[in-house]
Amino acid sequence: DATRCSICQKTGEVLHEVSNGSVVHRLCSDSCFSKFRANK
């Protein structure tokens, strides 16, 4: 199964994995990581 970025939905390489309870968010770049943090 292809890994997909939680923010931009791009498949491919994942730079960050953030687990939040039972959910793991995968983020492909620092910019997506920043957006993820801002959205929480």
Rank of each mutant, 00 (worst) to 15 (best):
N20K: 09
Q9N: 05
R26F: 08
N39L: 13
G21E: 12
L27M: 13
R26K: 12
A2K: 15
D1M: 14
V23H: 14
F36V: 10
I7S: 05
E13R: 08
G12D: 05
T11K: 04
C32F: 00
N39V: 13
C32V: 01
K35R: 14
F36A: 13
C32G: 02
S31T: 13
S19L: 06
S22Q: 12
G12L: 06
E13G: 05
I7Q: 14
R4P: 04
T3L: 10
T11C: 03
R37V: 06
K35N: 13
D1W: 03
V23A: 10
T3F: 08
S6R: 06
S31E: 14
V24S: 07
H16L: 02
N39C: 05
V18C: 07
C5K: 01
S19W: 06
A38G: 12
E17V: 03
S29L: 01
H25N: 11
H16T: 04
V18E: 08
T3C: 01
N20M: 12
F33Q: 15
V14F: 10
V18G: 03
C5D: 01
A2H: 13
V23S: 12
L15W: 07
K35A: 14
S6Q: 05
K35E: 15
D1L: 10
T3D: 10
V14E: 03
V24A: 11
K35Q: 14
R26D: 02
L27T: 10
S6L: 05
C28R: 00
L27S: 03
E17K: 10
V14L: 04
S34Q: 15
D1R: 08
C32A: 03
N39E: 14
H16N: 06
A2D: 15
V18W: 06
V23P: 04
F36E: 13
I7F: 09
G12Y: 08
T3N: 13
Q9E: 13
F36K: 03
G21T: 04
S29M: 02
H16Y: 03
E17A: 01
K10C: 04
N39F: 15
V24C: 07
K40M: 08
N39Q: 15
I7G: 09
R37T: 13
F36S: 08
V18I: 10
V24H: 11
S19N: 13
V23T: 14
C8F: 01
H25F: 06
T3A: 04
V24L: 10
S6M: 04
S29C: 02
N39M: 13
A38D: 09
Q9D: 05
S22N: 13
L15M: 14
I7A: 05
L15C: 11
F36W: 15
S34K: 15
L15Y: 08
H16Q: 11
T11V: 03
H16G: 05
Q9Y: 12
L15T: 08
A2C: 15
G12W: 02
S6Y: 13
G12E: 10
E17I: 03
R37I: 03
F36R: 06
E13A: 11
R37E: 15
S19C: 05
H25L: 06
R26V: 04
S29E: 05
S22K: 12
K35T: 13
S31I: 13
S19F: 09
A38R: 07
N20A: 10
V23E: 14
G21C: 04
I7K: 03
L27N: 02
V23W: 01
F33I: 10
A38S: 07
R4F: 15
S34V: 13
S31A: 10
S22E: 12
S6K: 06
D30K: 09
G12C: 14
K10I: 03
L27A: 04
E13T: 09
R4G: 07
S31D: 14
L27P: 03
D30P: 04
C8T: 02
N20R: 09
T11P: 03
S19I: 09
L15N: 11
F33W: 15
T3G: 14
K40V: 14
C28D: 02
A38V: 06
S22T: 12
C8H: 02
V24T: 11
S22Y: 05
V23C: 00
G12V: 09
R4K: 06
I7C: 03
E17R: 03
D30S: 04
V24G: 06
C8W: 00
S29D: 04
C5M: 03
D1P: 05
